[in-house]
Design a protein around this nucleic acid. Structure first.
Lengths: 204, 204
DNA sequence: GCAAAGAGAACGAACGTTCTCTCTACATTC
DNA sequence: GAATGTAGAGAGAACGTTCGTTCTCTTTGC
């Protein structure tokens, strides 16, 4: 006998989301848009269409859900970098072109997806314990981000790869914060400034 | 008959703080260091040595206390600017010198007092309602900050005062975030970069 | 048959807020 | 100068709500 889910799957309309998926997606949306401490577990499970028991079956507690949320954000940015690298590889782009691609991707991400600041900066405002698991994810993310940019800058023959990466991290932080609190098209000035500090042609 | 407070006052050891003062000072410390939503009213009144009733006599509610906290932060930065202006006036410093003084003051403030990020950025992470009173304070502060820097840059004969001010705001945001999350001496690079974008001599 | 999910009650704790009661400080009045 | 009135602060109980978490029970899917 076929279930409703089977039927949906068979028709191929939509893939039925597993509870964990829905939980993570809902938590990502709510935590980012309304702050972590401002959103209770009840809200998350209700909007995810899941019961509390199911949530605690997948996550030991709320903090684990927060960590999963941040790791999901981290994975998305890594995907962005990977996509840029793929595109550069297939089109035979130079390391400088790849750096430009990454800069464009980051700017695009900020204007389309992350209009309420940086998830990691925001989470750090709510989690003062520097030794806690949440801040550990933030640290890992930022370390990876900086290290990756250093590699890219190095491959693109930047004069001082570490300094270039530091400047790009700085610019991205400021762009995310600025576009959230001040509005306006900060992404455009980010792109031009980032290209300049990266030693790229500032055409566009 | 003399009370304990009278005695303390008479001896002149310490000036007894008014409850409102203690509340605001305690709230400022706790909200900044542990996040706003993470600190309950009980914590604030307990550490301020004040009863709940007294708090609600001075503030309509917690949100009013948050607003007062941010306005206090705002006032401190304005004082910093005023002090720099006074110093410049008494020493007959040029507008460029004043701009340099302000940059130094901001850098010094970030290294000594604000090592846990920007109070306004952090508060905005916890208060998603852009139309609420908290975000209104943030907006006022940032508008004033930008406008004042524009004036200073204009007086210092910067090429593009508005762009210079925007760059300085950006740099300050990034310094505060960076020193909190990444550690290290971000203030030094802030000073040199800020002086450069402000068109000042970059000799330390 | 068994693991996973739904449904919902229940827990103690903490939240923001309001209340009553007492005491002290200080200005007004006799 | 002593008595009195009043506003402000201390002490603490209590409100209803929400928090994060755990529980039992039933239903579903493979």
């Amino acid at each position: 006998m076929h279930s409703v889910k089977d039927e949906i799957r068979r028709i191929g309309l939509v893939k039925v989301s597993e509870p964990r998926e829905r939980l993570l997606r809902t938590a990502t949306r709510l935590f980012y848009e309304e702050g972590i401490n401002g959103v209770g577990v009840d809200r998350v499970v209700a909007e995810a269409g899941v019961t509390r028991a199911t949530m605690y079956r997948h996550f030991p507690g709320k903090e684990a859900l927060v960590v999963a949320y941040l790791e999901h954000e981290d994975a998305m940015i890594r995907d962005l970098f990977a996509a840029a690298a793929d595109q550069a590889a297939t089109t035979g782009a130079s390391p400088s072109d790849l750096l430009a691609l990454v800069i464009d991707g980051v700017a695009d991400d900020a204007t389309r997806l992350h209009t309420r600041g940086c998830p990691f900066i925001n989470a750090s405002a709510e989690f003062p314990d520097a030794d806690g698991p949440v801040r550990a994810v933030v640290r890992r993310h930022r370390d990876w981000f900086r290290a990756t940019l250093t590699e890219l800058a190095s491959a693109a023959d930047a004069e001082d790869p570490a300094a270039t990466a530091a400047a790009l991290v700085l610019l991205r932080d400021a762009m995310l914060v600025g576009s959230y609190l001040d509005g306006g098209d900060v992404a455009a000035s980010f792109r031009s400034t980032a290209r300049r500090v990266a030693g790229l042609a500032s055409l566009t």
